[in-house]
């Protein structure tokens, strides 16, 4: 537990560093939000622009702006969107769960199916199915996310129309909560597969390699010598050891998956954080962009701590002194 407490303390410092870095980067980026806002409202004259800059506190020295922002964030206030004139926290919260749903489904799909495929192919490494899965994995790994997305849309939404082309809900639907959930799940299939397929390919390859190694280990031979059925040998004795590298890589890749979600949300018009981030970049909506960056970094840090916890639950050797023997 001490180790986890220390990790949390370190993480808070890390998040503070991320806030300072992101704030500085956005401050240094070219472009002036006051001009964008003034231009949108149809009045581009210097007096209006100066007024907007003063209202937003953009004329204050950099350190004052930074100090004020860090203080606000510490109190849970991520500022107000320049664009929507709404609190950033509210904007993010409404977009958070679609992204969670998308990333969570994609991660679960990739890990569960990837590990199952890896185990299956490791048990029959020379079978035609195993070779087929290897080819599929390499293909899945090689395809860019946006291209996979477009391909799936053409095949399954346009040609055969099994799934909707884009969005998260059918606006025409008027049903109870169950029908609404089914509708969301129906919309979720293609984006989740698009985001998950690249990781599915990686996890299936990784678990196959790991499983092949573990199946040759002495303790698997001991389990067989005890008279255990092969299924129990594989799923109890080998699998728990074989998933350790998959858990590590999945934890480390969470950040990448969030960036992948940005592309997928754009392709499928999914109303998540990724699209909000992309829009805020184009509209120079610094508070929203900063809020999303801070949230993403915090999520990555939290997922890494959770990975650490899961890692310790799986492998007792790591519970001692924080290091594997």
């Amino acid at each position: 537990m001490n180790h986890i407490t220390a990790r949390v303390a370190w993480s808070l410092g890390l998040i503070l560093a991320v806030i300072v870095m992101c704030f500085t980067l956005i401050h240094l980026a070219p472009g002036d939000v006051a001009i964008v806002i003034a231009g949108d409202s149809g009045a581009g004259d210097p007096e209006v622009i100066a007024e907007i800059r003063e209202d937003l506190g953009l004329d204050d020295p950099f350190l004052v702006q930074l100090g004020g922002y860090v203080g606000d964030v510490a109190q849970g206030d991520l500022g107000t969107s320049y664009r929507f004139n709404e609190p950033v926290t509210e904007l993010i919260v409404t977009r958070l769960w679609p992204t969670f749903l998308l990333v969570g489904t994609a991660v679960s799909f990739a890990i569960v199916l990837g590990v199952l495929v890896g185990v299956f192919t490791a048990r029959r490494p020379e079978s035609p199915i195993s070779h087929g899965v290897t080819v599929f994995s390499l293909t899945g790994y090689s395809m860019p996310v946006f291209w996979t997305g477009l391909l799936l849309v053409i095949m399954f939404a346009s040609n055969v129309q099994w799934f909707p082309v884009s969005g998260m809900r059918d606006v025409r639907l008027e049903g109870n909560w169950l029908e609404e959930w089914i509708d969301v799940a129906h919309h979720l299939v293609l984006p989740a597969i698009t985001l998950g397929v690249i990781y599915l390919a990686q996890y299936s390859r990784l678990s196959r390699a790991s499983m092949l190694e573990v199946l040759q280990s002495d303790y698997v031979r001991t389990a067989r010598a005890k008279g255990l059925a092969e299924r129990r040998v594989v799923y109890k004795h080998a699998l728990r050891n074989a998933v350790i590298p998959v858990v590590t890589v999945a934890g480390l890749q969470f950040g990448q998956m969030l960036s992948g979600a940005l592309l997928v949300e754009t392709v499928f018009n999914w109303p998540g954080l990724g699209r909000l981030a992309a829009d805020s970049v184009f509209q120079r909506d610094a508070p929203v962009l900063l809020g999303i960056l801070i949230l993403s970094s915090t999520l990555v840090v939290i997922i890494n701590i959770l990975t650490d916890v899961v890692y310790r639950l799986i492998d007792p050797r790591i519970r001692v002194g924080g290091a594997s023997q």
Partner: peptide, 14 residues
């Protein structure tokens, strides 16, 4: 039943 050479690797670490 059988006993193996290397008792560390012959027991499942987890």
């Amino acid at each position: 039943s059988m006993i193996f050479q290397e008792p560390l690797t012959s027991l499942n670490p987890v």
